[in-house]
C-alpha cells in the first residue's frame, strides 16, 4: 500500500513521478467505474505498486482524470470543516457507572436466581443422601443378619446332629429323606 499523495501538489504533474513530456497532449480515456474506483483507492493509498504506476501514468496524460482527482481530494478536504465532537466531561464517569450498575444488576439477578438454585441443589443433595443412607442400612442389615438366618435354617439339623452322626452314611440319610421321613421336620423349619 502506498501513502496518500500530498494534496497541495496535485496540480503538479511531477508529483506523480511521471515525465512532464507525457502530459503535453490531452489523451482522455474513458472513465469506467473500475478506473474511477482505482483513482479513489489511489487517493486512499490502497493500490499496489504496479496499479499506482498505471494510475499515475494516466494522470499524466489525461486532464479529465487529473481534474477528477483534484475534485475528489478537495471535497474530501472539506470534511475537515465538520465540527469536532465534544464530549461532556461526565461521559466517561457515567459510562463506567452505567457498566458498574449493569454488572450490579446482573449480579443481583444471578443472586435471585441462585436462591432457588441453591435450595434445589440442597433438596437434590438431601434426596441422594437419604437414598444412600437407606441403601447402606439395607446392605448392613443383610450382612449382619445373614449368619443368624443361616443358623435358624439349619436348626433342625443341629438339633439332631448327634443322631445323624450315628447313621454314618449320607446315602442312607438321602434314602430316608426321599421316603419322606424328614418332611415333618422341614415343615417345622423356619
Amino acid at each position: 500500500m502506498n501513502k496518500q499523495p500530498d494534496p497541495s501538489k496535485l496540480d503538479e504533474t511531477k508529483a506523480f513521478n511521471v515525465p512532464m513530456v507525457e502530459s503535453v497532449e490531452d489523451d482522455s480515456d474513458e472513465m469506467t467505474e473500475e478506473t474511477f474506483a482505482d483513482l479513489v483507492a489511489y487517493l486512499d493509498g490502497e493500490l499496489a505498486a504496479e496499479e499506482v504506476t498505471e494510475v499515475e501514468q494516466r494522470l499524466a496524460r489525461d486532464d479529465a482524470y487529473r481534474d477528477r482527482l483534484r475534485q475528489l481530494q478537495h471535497s474530501w478536504d472539506l470534511l475537515e470543516s465538520l465540527p469536532r465532537t465534544s464530549i461532556n466531561d461526565d461521559f466517561t464517569r457515567s459510562t463506567v457507572e452505567l457498566v458498574a450498575l449493569s454488572i450490579g444488576a446482573q449480579v443481583e439477578q444471578r443472586r435471585g436466581q441462585s436462591w432457588w438454585v441453591q435450595r434445589m441443589r440442597w433438596g437434590v443433595a438431601g434426596i441422594i443422601v437419604a437414598v444412600f443412607a437407606l441403601g447402606g442400612f439395607g446392605v448392613a442389615y443383610e450382612r449382619l443378619t445373614r449368619d443368624q438366618r443361616q443358623l435358624l435354617r439349619d436348626l433342625p439339623v443341629i438339633e439332631r446332629v448327634d443322631l445323624y452322626r450315628e447313621v454314618n452314611s449320607i446315602e442312607f440319610l438321602e434314602k430316608l429323606a426321599s421316603e419322606g421321613l424328614f418332611d415333618e421336620e422341614k415343615a417345622d423349619a423356619p
Binding site: 467505474e33 474511477f36 474506483a37 479513489v40 486512499d44 477528477r68 475528489l72 471535497s75 474530501w76
Partner: peptide
C-alpha cells in the same frame, strides 16, 4: 469496500463541488 468508497466519494464530490473552490 473499494466499490463502496468510490461511490461514497463520488457522491460527496458531486454534492460538495459547489463549495470546493
Amino acid at each position: 469496500v473499494k466499490s463502496l468508497m468510490s461511490r461514497a466519494r463520488e457522491k460527496l464530490r458531486q454534492l460538495l463541488e459547489p463549495y470546493v473552490d
